[in-house]
Design a protein around this nucleic acid. Sequence first.
DNA 1: TCTGGGGTCCTAGGACCC
DNA 2: TCTGGGGTCCTAGGACCC
Length: 455
Amino acid sequence: MRSTASIMHLDLDAFFAAVEQRDKPSLRGKPVCVGGIGARGVVATASYEARRFGARSAMPTAEARRRCPPGTAFLYPRGDAYRASSRIVMDLLRQVSPLVEQVSVDEAYVDLAAGEGLDLTPDGVRATVNDLLREITAATGGLTASAGIGTSKMLAKIGSDLDKPAGLVLVPPGQELELLAPLSVRVVSGIGPATEARLRSFGVETVADLQRMERPDLVSIFGSAHGGSLYELARARDDREVVVEREAKSVSAEETFEHDVVDHDVLDAELVSLARRTAARLGKSAAFARTVTIKVRQHDFATSTRSETLLHPTGDAGVILDVARRLLAGVDVSNGLRLLGVGVSGLSTHAQEQLRFDEDHDPLLPIGEADAEVPATPAGDVRRTPGPAAYTGDGPPDWWPGQDVEHTEQGTGWVWGSGLGRVTVRFEGPTTGPGPVRTFRADDPALRKTGPPQW
DNA sequence: TCTGGGGTCCTAGGACCC
DNA sequence: TCTGGGGTCCTAGGACCC
């Protein structure tokens, strides 16, 4: 904790849904849920209008559909569009201070004390951040962000949540405990549902209650790391620094099936795809991994992992696949799997390239094994990625709700829905008014996918 | 038609080594 | 020949975060 309120936390408001409403004028002011749209999907972001009906992040989409009125848009995420806006925002943050820690696509901490020539008095900081919020809105075509400023990450984060959307809360030095005391323990970083329930069984519900717990008691209940940090954070003692970049520790890919899968061939095909995706992302960061982990979730949601550590790091999809197959062979899949995942950890960077070279020429390995080719995905099944394809079920499955498209005569628009060999498109963009709706055959050659629109 | 996907950190037990 | 203790690695699981 520092003596000036110089750590900012910035959070884009209902980010995914806000981008959709920006790019799809007919959705402005309407309930919108973005996330998985299949039977087993969950909501990633609900617009404020959808929240009024009770839709929330992490809620099963089926539940959100029950709660929201007819006409609510349920859209599959457009990652590229979100990343493009995110990049603009993060660049603006870096113009304020070089010390920017991006937590996720829509969230970051900024150490304002590292900014060039910033006035760090409360009034000065407020003015700086107000300007920043306005710039973000202007540069992103209307997205809003909320900011919290405080003497630590925790206080900044709590502040950014107090006046959403488009809010700015500065917690002045010295007022931290007063602010924290009446709040639910859930505001403390590291307290989730399990810890909250555990604390409640001790009669602890607010931060003030938590402050009355002795450190040794917290440590004996929650372990030394967690217990100790609860004790400190309850007292607003938080010395976590803003760090620009952390090295990735693991990479993984997983897939929840629309229906539980028993068929070994289908599971194997999925394993191939997951191993490839994992290896591809590993390669992108020029990294190699020693430990391969598979994750399985049974029909009853029981989840387990199996892992194996190799002698040498690998970046080879074939090697990862071999290990994953071995691990899966030791798992009972007879009742059907709901989810399958492949991950790698124990990462080393390109500095270790020599090791990989050695591994590829390990004389103890049978010839060809180290260079095993990834077999081609069996034909037939498996076009489960990305998810929504399986959702529509019939016809060419390539159209998913929210997707950007272009029609040779009608211009650009987005997919409202599809099925029964048809696709319904609304022709509008960020700079148009609400546009007309047209329905086409799903295989209409005049219709094609495009990238996110510019605004 | 309950419960995504991508991560991080911590704990605990057993193996193994000194 | 009843019996230590520390350190590290590996595996598995759990809580938490966005």
